[in-house]
Design a protein around this nucleic acid. Sequence first.
DNA 1: CCGAATCGAGACATATATGTCTCATGCGAG
DNA 2: CTCGCATGAGACATATATGTCTCGATTCGG
Lengths: 182, 182
Amino acid sequence: MRDRGVSTVGHILEAAFEVFSQNPGASLADVAKQAGVGRATLHRHFSGRDDLMIALTLTAAKELDTAVEEATANCQTYTEGLEAGLHAILPLAARHMFLSTEPASQDPRVTEVYATQTRDLAHDIDMAKAEGTFDPHVPTEWIVQGYENLIYAGWATVVAGDATPKQAAALAWRTLTRGTCP
Amino acid sequence: MRDRGVSTVGHILEAAFEVFSQNPGASLADVAKQAGVGRATLHRHFSGRDDLMIALTLTAAKELDTAVEEATANCQTYTEGLEAGLHAILPLAARHMFLSTEPASQDPRVTEVYATQTRDLAHDIDMAKAEGTFDPHVPTEWIVQGYENLIYAGWATVVAGDATPKQAAALAWRTLTRGTCP
DNA sequence: CCGAATCGAGACATATATGTCTCATGCGAG
DNA sequence: CTCGCATGAGACATATATGTCTCGATTCGG
């Protein structure tokens, strides 16, 4: 197999992340232009908008998975893993957030990916509860939401120029665990 | 002036909040249908999509302002005010969140409203810092982001059926101030 | 060098969203 | 009751997004 095909698909996906991050309603022509490919070429690889969105979701999930696995490889506890994972996810948050505002895809692979991600995160949080990191009286569902949304808050802070990714991740973790009190 | 005109505009705005909350890319026809008015009637009151979005933004800002002012009328401290404001804002978050993903409007009224909101919140947080509620070493910009995003997290928790609005607001405030540690 | 595959550009048809217009209807004011 | 006004329904034109197709250029393997 030539690598040109793979490269083209990669360019399109990368361009789609950039364009849709800035404007979720952008046209496929905008994506093709950003990717530096013809509009027809985009359609050669993705049958349409839905198909592209599904590919973006699966790509994003894989990127996330890889980044988290790599970051948590040497972690001894679930608590450390969650903190390291937060640091790993934050720089990737921008490209993935627009997907959450997308009308829910009916594709079974997409729904399964989301379910797996949430389930795994909830599991790790439950384990971290057992390690004494989180109050057992606080619902795990809430901590999941807090984890995800504080990552988004961190990314927003980075975009605003008010922190580096590392600083933002540290603030997010501190807030989730100890809050912002003195 | 008859009240029918006002009522129609109100219905359209209300419908737009509902429709765009679920699908930011919905058509104006969808909005008109949800509002129970003709498509032409919508165009009689709003020149187009942009005009409608601006009206939604200003309406949302006014709703927020009213709710917060009412909730904080009897508060003695800035800290109490922030907590009461969080409780007041959370139930309204759903209708406003989609506006933040909208491509930034160039309308001066919109940009000014956003600037004022953020400035006021930052001011209150600075005052609450002086009251000892927040660590002065934590950037105010971060606390602003945390405040806003934990509200969103709370709303998401409510939508998921995992908490009541009151519970979610309490969890958000607790997390922002003390975190989720035991 | 030759052939196959892929690509960019662009023409073309279609679908949807948008904006404007007309006309008949309903409802309240006078 | 009659008039006037806002409305609903729908026709109409336009713009944009989308999906398909063709053709010539480029690139890589043989």
